[in-house]
Design a protein around this nucleic acid. Structure first.
Lengths: 182, 182
DNA sequence: TGCTCCATGTAGCAATCGCTACATTAAGAT
DNA sequence: ATCTTAATGTAGCGATTGCTACATGGAGCA
């Protein structure tokens, strides 16, 4: 049924926009449908049930995220690990990334609790980010693969601490780890 | 009104137990009340409304977390940063800490979205953890304050990546950062 | 004995939840 | 022209949401 698949893919961007603004926790069918210009009746018709809808929506959001990462960053490598860390931190602080970040913690919470579809989408986004980070590592880095994982762990810790008002703690940690210029 | 305060504090542990098992997202009054052996009617009576209940519950959970941290770890210092990192990672992998960890991501998500009470509780728990980590740092460490923040950022990143199925990525990062013995 | 007031049970309200039964439209196939 | 079928609207179901109105018990105080 190509028309069904077309309909799904027509709906998903609008659903994603709504979820990016209002979060996943309170996402119920009627507001979602309204945001997509249709009815709850039709959402069930196209996706079968809410669980499937959310799973497909998460997959779509992961795709959007990948595209946003690609757009936000040119392909050229950094010259130092410090520069590499600074770049990805700068991406995270862009205003248009804030909605993603807020939604991200919803997804992490769902993944931790084992909700269907959450872990897959989260893992996909992390894999994508890791690949991008590896591509950004300095050409003369002695261990680009390990270094990228090291940087990524530090970055994610920084994002989490920032989310709960401990951003300064994280920055001091980055400083002490030599990942920020002193 | 001491009786009201007593009632609140009598209820909070049972409410916390329920939330630790079932999460904060789906926590509604009637299941909470049932877990506490009372009625939704009485929860509203004692706490005024659900928002206040959740805020006080989060504060209580932060207190529980602090106590659990103290219990789980003796007071003596580690001898190296590696040992320090290993200790706190070991704490996080204890089975009785799993419920806390799952709930933690709910709290982070609420804090990121700005829900009332979440950020305060999360910040309190992170402050407590930081203090504990500083007390664990090696006595001969050249920069215990910065080192504790560095370790904490790495640890939080590791926990997040583990929650989304990228625990191996984090471990490789810790290895590359010299925080795990190779 | 009355009076007062905190604590609690019972019942229910309006809103929202995911989902479904049924009817209707419209387009394409025969 | 008829038949079939995908797509959609309307209406509603039973459950659950946070919260409230009302009545009642029961303890302390006069």
């Amino acid at each position: 049924m190509p028309s069904v698949q077309l309909s799904r893919e027509t709906l998903l961007p609008k659903l994603a926009a709504h979820v990016l603004e209002h979060g996943l926790g309170g996402a119920s069918l009627r507001p979602l449908a309204k945001a997509a210009g249709t009815s709850d009746r039709m959402l069930i018709y196209h996706f079968g049930n809410k669980e499937t809808l959310i799973s497909e929506l998460l997959g779509h959001i992961a795709t959007i995220y990948s595209a946003a990462l690609d757009t936000a960053l040119g392909g050229e490598r950094a010259r130092t690990r410090q520069e590499c860390a600074a770049r990805i931190l700068a991406v995270g602080s862009q205003p248009e990334m804030q909605a993603f970040l807020v939604l991200w913690w919803d997804i992490v919470a769902g993944a931790a609790r084992g909700l269907p579809g959450y872990r897959e989408a989260a893992a996909q986004m992390m894999t994508q980010q890791l690949a991008w980070l590896e591509g950004q590592m300095p050409a003369d880095d002695p261990d680009p693969a390990g270094g990228a994982r090291y940087l990524m762990t530090m970055i994610e810790g920084t994002l989490m601490l920032s989310a709960v008002g401990h951003g300064d703690t994280a920055l001091q940690g980055l400083l002490a780890g030599g990942l920020l210029p002193s």
